[in-house]
Design a protein around this nucleic acid. Structure first.
Lengths: 242, 242
DNA sequence: CGACGCTTTGACACAACTCAACAACCGTGG
DNA sequence: CCACGGTTGTTGAGTTGTGTCAAAGCGTCG
C-alpha cells in the first residue's frame, strides 16, 4: 500500500477509494500534476467563458465555483474542499461555463489538460476513476439543486451545514460536531439562493433553537439529531470499491 | 462516415459529435445496448436507493429524473430527451441517488453496467466521450441550479422553455419557435421549484406579455428576443471536436 | 483614531404559497 | 348520444416567507 504517496497527493487518495490504483497509475497521477502553487485570497482560478484552461486539484484552503449573472448577482455552485477537482469539466467541454475563485489562501496543483485526454489511452482505469469522481461531484450539485428548489430557508441552511460537515469529515477536516468554516453571510447567501440579510436571520434562528452556531469562522453543531431532522438530511452511503 | 449507423443509434450520434468514432468503437456501442424496449407512461426506470442498476439510453419519448423528499414533495432534476443517458451516474456510484420515470410512452435501450466499466479498457476514447457526455449533463444541472437559485419565477420559466427548446432543436425535435412539450403544470412546478398554481399564473403572464404560449402540449414562442432578454438566456457555444 | 468589512436589527414591500372553488377537457360507460 | 368522473387548467382572497432599504454595532487593521 502506498500510504505515504496517497497522503502526499489528495487526488490520488480520493481516486484510490474508488479503484485500487497500481504503482504505474499513481505515478501517472503524480506526473500529471504540477508543483503545488499558492493562490491569493479572492483570486480567480478559472474565468467563465475562457477557453483552453487548466484544471486544478485543490490541495489546501477553500474555494468556490459560481456563475455570475448579468444583473451582478451570482449563484455559487459548490465549495471545493481539499482533494477536489476544479475545472475538470471545462477541460472536457473546452469552454468553462462557470468561474472559480479562492475564498482563502489556497494551494493548488495544476493539471495539464492535453495530457488529461491522453490518460484514457494509457491508463483506462484511471479514466474510469476520474469519471467516478466527476459523478460524485455531479451528485453534489443535484443535492444542492434539491435543497434550493424544495426546502425553506431554514431547512436549506441546516442541510447545507450538515452536508458540508460530512464532506469535511471524510478528509479529516471536521469532527463530529464542529469544523472551521470561513464562509461569510454574503457567500452563504449566494450559495443558498437567499439574501445575505435573510441568511443572518436564519442563522439567528438556528442559534436560538439551540441547533447550531456559526461564529468566528467556526461551525458548532449543538443538536445533530434535531438539525438532521430539520434539514431532511440523510447520511450518505459508504463508497464501494470496484 | 457511418451516417446510417449514427442515425440508427442516438447515443452514437451524440458521442460522435465529440470524438470522431471508429468503426470498432461504433460497433462496441451497438453491442453495448440491448434491443430497444418500450416503457409505459409513468413507469419508473430507476428507483432511488436501488443498487446494481442498468443505465438506459432514451431513444424516443419523454422522461424526467427527480428526487423525492420525505414530505412528499419532489424536485425534478432534468428532462432527458431522446439521445440522453439515463442513470449513467448510478452505474458508476453503484447506488442511485435519484429516480427516473417516463412521462410519455417511451422507448429505451438498456446498457449493461458491468460491460460499461470494461469499455474503458477496450476503447479508451469511448470512455473519454462518455465522460464528455456526463460533463454536458452536469452543465445542464448547473444551469438549472442557477435558474432556480437566482431568478424570479417569471425569468426562470422563460429561461426553462428557451433552454428546453434549444436542446430539442439539436436533435431535430423543435423548430425555431415551436415544439411539442407534454409537461403539465404540476410537472413544471416540480422542475422549477414553484407551486403548480404559481406556474399557472406565470404562464398566463408570459402569454399576456405576448412572449410565449403553452397550450395543448405545444410550446409556441412569439417573441424570441424579448423572451431571451427576460430569461437572461445566452446561446450555448457550438461543440468543438477533439 | 478612523476606515473598513462583516454582522445584526427593524420596518416595510412584494413575490410566491395555500386554500378553496370552479371551468374546461377527455375518455369511459351507460 | 349524453352523463359522468378524473385530470388538468384557471381564478380569487388571504397568508407567509423572503427581499429591500436603512441604520447601527462590532472587530480588526492600518
Amino acid at each position: 500500500m502506498c500510504v505515504m504517496q496517497a497522503a502526499a497527493d489528495r487526488l490520488a487518495a480520493k481516486l484510490n477509494t474508488f479503484v485500487q490504483l497500481s504503482y504505474g497509475e499513481l505515478d501517472c497521477l503524480t506526473r500529471l500534476q504540477s508543483r503545488p502553487t499558492s493562490v491569493k485570497i479572492g483570486h480567480a482560478l478559472v474565468q467563465e467563458g475562457q477557453t483552453g484552461h487548466k484544471a486544478f486539484i485543490l490541495q489546501a484552503g477553500w474555494a468556490c465555483s459560481f456563475k455570475s449573472m448579468r444583473d451582478g448577482n451570482r449563484q455559487i455552485i459548490g465549495f471545493p474542499i481539499p482533494g477536489d477537482c476544479i475545472g475538470l469539466r471545462s477541460v472536457l467541454l473546452r469552454t468553462s461555463d462557470h468561474s472559480f475563485s479562492a475564498l482563502t489562501e489556497a494551494t493548488v496543483s495544476g493539471v495539464d489538460a492535453s495530457r488529461m485526454i491522453g490518460i484514457f489511452n494509457e491508463f483506462p482505469r484511471l479514466g474510469a476513476a476520474i469519471l467516478w469522481a466527476a459523478s460524485r461531484e455531479e451528485a453534489m450539485v443535484v443535492e444542492h439543486l434539491v435543497n434550493i428548489g424544495r426546502r425553506s430557508a431554514l431547512e436549506r441552511t441546516a442541510n447545507f451545514f450538515l452536508e458540508l460537515g460530512e464532506r469535511l469529515r471524510l478528509v479529516g477536516l471536521a469532527s463530529e460536531t464542529t469544523y472551521a468554516c470561513p464562509l461569510n453571510q454574503y457567500v452563504l447567501a449566494d450559495a443558498l439562493g437567499l439574501s445575505a440579510i435573510h441568511v443572518n436571520r436564519v442563522l439567528r434562528q438556528l442559534r436560538e433553537l439551540g441547533l447550531m452556531t456559526l461564529k468566528g469562522g467556526q461551525v458548532v453543531i449543538h443538536d445533530v439529531t434535531a438539525l438532521e431532522h430539520l434539514g431532511g438530511f440523510e447520511k450518505q452511503d459508504p463508497v464501494t470499491r470496484t
